[in-house]
């Protein structure tokens, strides 16, 4: 305490020091002291992220481009597939290294989004089922979304060290909340009379969740996944400060050297990746029935293959179901 400071009733705050910053610094010490506990766990997750990165980079770019385009076709239709294909092509042309960097970034995003899904879906379900838990969770989610990333960057690095795993953790903190919120919202938004009907016909709570609530909440949950993907991408530059490779690192290094050209390459790469992932995940959120198909396997490349095999089997009468009549899209 500073003895010189006289207490002023109109400005009491300047003379009171509770030492919050110092005690919070204790967290840092604690984190450093406990690093050895964390390291083995970290190694496992680091291997996973590195493996995804390696796998994505092992595929020849053109093959990967075709694969992602096919996924986009299946998930979101032909027009989106064309857009995605063109975007990826442009991404490759940005810079000789751009494709490989983009794949590394994609690996981080995939890891972070998968982790978010694994953590966020159960929490979202719990929040939907329990008002108390939702009330408890809400300020935590607010905190996660608004606290500047730099604040938790340091403790995470102290605890886990620099590298991919820290990058993923930092990304999760920022990208998780919308998935939890939208999962809860989606389940709470399910028509209660449908849930009541399921109860009346003898469904158990688990069956109600799996057969009624989750399927009906899927569009909202996938909107949450879409948001999580977008937020993960927006974290790549910050994550690169703790030595995460990829497009973000490119931007960071360009900033350090005031190299506007390099920054633009990295920045555009992130934007293109964002567009691609956004279109694909949005397409998944839209059900096939909204686009006029009855089942997802009747459209896109899978639908094409399905029709081809059916055409080949046309000579032999179909053993299973009679051919379904197509509904006219309205």
């Amino acid at each position: 305490m500073d003895e010189d400071t006289t207490f002023n009733i109109l400005d009491p705050f300047s003379s009171i020091d509770l030492g919050i910053a110092d005690s919070a610094g204790g967290i840092k010490q604690w984190a450093i002291a406990n690093r050895d506990l964390i390291q083995p766990i970290k190694a496992v997750f680091n291997d996973i992220v590195t493996a995804i990165d390696g796998a994505l980079n092992a595929v020849p770019p053109l093959v990967m481009l075709a694969l992602i385009t096919l996924i986009a076709w299946q998930a979101a239709g032909r027009r989106t597939a064309i857009l995605v294909g063109l975007c990826l092509f442009a991404l490759g042309l940005l810079d000789p290294n751009a494709w490989s960097l983009a794949m590394t970034t994609l690996a981080i995003v995939i890891s972070a989004v998968t982790a978010c899904f694994v953590i966020g879906l159960p929490l979202g379900i719990l929040a939907a089922k329990s008002d108390g838990f939702e009330r408890l969770l809400r300020p935590v989610l607010d905190l996660m979304q608004t606290i500047p990333a730099f604040v938790y960057l340091v403790p995470v690095v102290m605890l886990v060290g620099i590298g991919n795993v820290s990058g993923v953790i930092v990304t999760i903190v920022f990208a998780l909340p919308p998935l939890i919120r939208l999962t809860s919202l989606g389940i709470r938004g399910v028509n209660p009379s449908v849930v009541e009907a399921a109860r009346a016909f003898g469904a158990s709570p688990r069956q109600i969740l799996l057969k009624v609530e989750l399927p009906l909440a899927t569009p909202t949950i996938l909107a949450g996944v879409n948001q999580t993907i977008m937020l993960s991408l927006s974290m790549v530059v910050i994550a690169s400060m703790i030595s995460v490779k990829g497009l973000g690192n490119e931007v960071l290094r360009a900033m350090g050297r005031l190299d506007a050209g390099k920054a633009i390459v990295g920045g555009l790469g992130i934007v293109i990746l964002a567009v691609v992932l956004d279109r694909i995940s949005q397409g998944m959120g839209q059900s096939g029935r909204e686009r006029g198909q009855r089942h997802w396997w009747q459209s896109g490349p899978v639908g094409l293959a399905w029709r081809l095999t059916r055409a080949r089997n046309e000579t032999t009468p179909p053993v299973s179901a009679a051919p379904r009549t197509e509904v006219q899209s309205n």
Partner: peptide
């Protein structure tokens, strides 16, 4: 509920999916 009682609702309450 599943074996002895069938219920019909005013607002149908069919499962849209």
């Amino acid at each position: 509920r599943a074996e002895k009682i069938g219920m019909v609702f005013q607002n149908m309450a069919l499962m849209p999916h």
